[in-house]
C-alpha cells in the first residue's frame, strides 16, 4: 500500500523543492514539437477553463487510484461552482493540507469567479478538469494518447478559448 510512506516523502518534497529539482534533472526530456494556438480574443470576452493536476474531485466521485505506483491517468470533471465542502483532494504525492484549507491554491475557481465579476474574464467553462499529477510508466502513454486528448476534445467542443493549468 505504502500510503503513509508516500505522504511522508510528499511532505519532504513540499518542504525542500530543491530535491524535486534534482530528481527532475534525471528525467528524460520530451523532444516532441510543442503545439501553438494564437491568442486573439480579449480575456474579457473569452471563455476560460481550469485544468488542475492537484487531485481535486467531488466527494461523490471515485477517488484517484493511490495503490498503483504508476499513478492514475484518469480525470474528473469538477463543477466550477461546487462548494469547497463538496470537494476533496486524493493525492498522496504532495502535502495538500494547505490546499484543503484553501482550494484556490490548486483549483482557483473562487478567485477566477472574482475576475469574472470584475469584468476582466469573460466567463468560466462550467467544469474544471482534474488529474492527479503523479503519473509514471505505462500510464504516461495513456495520459498522452487518451485522457489528455479527451479533455482537449471536450474543451474545444465547448468552444473554450483559453485554459489555465495548475500543478499540484
Amino acid at each position: 500500500m505504502g500510503g503513509w510512506k508516500d505522504r511522508m516523502v510528499a511532505k519532504v518534497f513540499t518542504r525542500f523543492p530543491g530535491l524535486a529539482a534534482r530528481w527532475a534533472r534525471g528525467l528524460a526530456a520530451d523532444t516532441e514539437p510543442i503545439p501553438w494556438t494564437p491568442v486573439t480574443k480579449p480575456l474579457a470576452e473569452a471563455t476560460l477553463a481550469v485544468v488542475t493536476t492537484g487531485g481535486v474531485h467531488l466527494r461523490t466521485q471515485a477517488p484517484f487510484d493511490m495503490v498503483d505506483p504508476g499513478g492514475d491517468p484518469s480525470f474528473r470533471e469538477v463543477p466550477m461552482n461546487a462548494a469547497p465542502t463538496d470537494l476533496i483532494i486524493t493525492h498522496d504525492y504532495y502535502d495538500h493540507a494547505d490546499a484543503e484549507r484553501d482550494l484556490n491554491l490548486v483549483f482557483p475557481a473562487g478567485r477566477l469567479r472574482e475576475a469574472v465579476a470584475a469584468g476582466v474574464v469573460g466567463r468560466l467553462h462550467g467544469v474544471g478538469y482534474s488529474f492527479m499529477g503523479h503519473i509514471d510508466g505505462a500510464h504516461v502513454e495513456t495520459l498522452r494518447r487518451r485522457s489528455a486528448p479527451e479533455v482537449a476534445r471536450r474543451l474545444a467542443g465547448a468552444h473554450v478559448d483559453y485554459a489555465l493549468l495548475v500543478p499540484a
Binding site: P17, Y162, L164
Partner: peptide, 22 residues
C-alpha cells in the same frame, strides 16, 4: 503533456510551474 494536448486541440494554454526543472 496535458497542456500540449489542449493547445493542439485549438485552445490556447498557460500553465503554472512550481519546479522549473520539471
Amino acid at each position: 503533456l496535458a497542456a500540449r494536448a489542449v493547445e493542439a486541440a485549438g485552445v490556447a494554454t498557460v500553465a503554472l510551474s512550481v519546479v522549473r526543472e520539471i
